[in-house]
Amino acid sequence: MSETNNEQPMIVCRGVKKWFDDFQALGGISMDVDKGEVIVIFGPSGSGKSTFIRCLNRLEEHQEGTIIIDGIELTHDTSNIEKVRMETGMVFQQFNLFPHKTVMENITLAPIRVRKWKKDKADEIAVQLLERVGIPEQAEKYPAALSGGQQQRVAIARALAMQPKIMLFDEPTSALDPEMIKEVLDVMIGLARSGMTMVVVTHEMGFAKSVADRMFFFDEGLIVESGTPDQIFNDPQQERTVLFLSQILTH
């Protein structure tokens, strides 16, 4: 991998604000993410964490502040937006696989249509990715024939097929049955250890402890507290952080 962009962070956010009509969802978020860093964002529902991560590939438009992804600023410029989306993979809570395409087609569609790869090359990489997420035998099935955990792993493979520099995860395990959460987290942990830059919205604190470099606690559209997992779990500074952690860790 090239080391050219080392001095420049992968993601730069400065004072990002966002309103839905009168409701302010983001009240000025600033955050830098370096190459290879794994960021975990957590917080109560309605705290703006999903809105924020969706702003990073402009599924939501921010109204104030700047977001720069790998040197490209997100503005109304459509070609910039498409460039950024090619470099950022996203995994959704509801998987959002394409139900009319097989697993293989789900993974190879964007590489063939957007990256303009030959089908052979796309197929080859798709097979490798299915191997990596542990379900090579499901390639020719349709998504509906797969379990939730398998679908989410296909979704991860689909995002990785574009060979993105950044992976965004928006509550990837929240819609899964408990016994399937681990298989998805294992894939994500492997990905984190391979040096991928990741921003993960999740309440899986075990995942955060084992691979996060930094954690951000969001509430009411603002970053309440940030730090290494060690600082957050063992020495939280803010009362709201303490309260929230006690709620999600003790049940």
Partner: peptide, 13 residues
């Protein structure tokens, strides 16, 4: 809407 978002997220126009 999730279908459209997923397609956008992989860079389709």
């Amino acid at each position: 809407l999730g279908q459209i978002e997923a397609a956008k997220a992989v860079g389709m126009n």
